[in-house]
């Protein structure tokens, strides 16, 4: 055992948390196309469910637009309603 080893009771947080941001605002994407399935898949999980804002970091305005687009895509059978292993 090394002599100068410092021990902590609780593990310290090594990295600072990165603040989330709205990608649509940052990259100035104003329109979310329901036809662009590959794009929409970024906001879905494996089961084809929408990711929450707390994970995606979207602003409310664009989260709503994403959800609208996903729902349209589902209606037109571009995306499944329920599935396993979407990606």
């Amino acid at each position: 055992m090394a002599k100068n080893e410092i021990k902590y009771l609780t593990a310290i947080k090594a990295d600072k948390r990165v603040k989330k941001f709205c990608r649509f605002k940052k990259y100035k994407i104003r329109y979310i196309d329901y036809k662009d399935v590959e794009f929409l898949k970024k906001f879905l999980n494996e089961q084809g469910k929408l990711l929450p804002r707390r994970l995606s970091g979207n602003s409310l305005k664009f989260q709503r637009k994403v959800s609208d687009a996903v729902k349209k895509a589902r209606q037109m059978s571009l995306l499944p309603y329920v599935t396993d292993l979407l990606k």
């Binding site: 990608r23 994407i29 662009d36 794009f39």
Partner: peptide
């Protein structure tokens, strides 16, 4: 403009 998101 949507291409930029591809990296994220």
């Amino acid at each position: 403009g949507t291409e930029k998101l591809a990296e994220v």
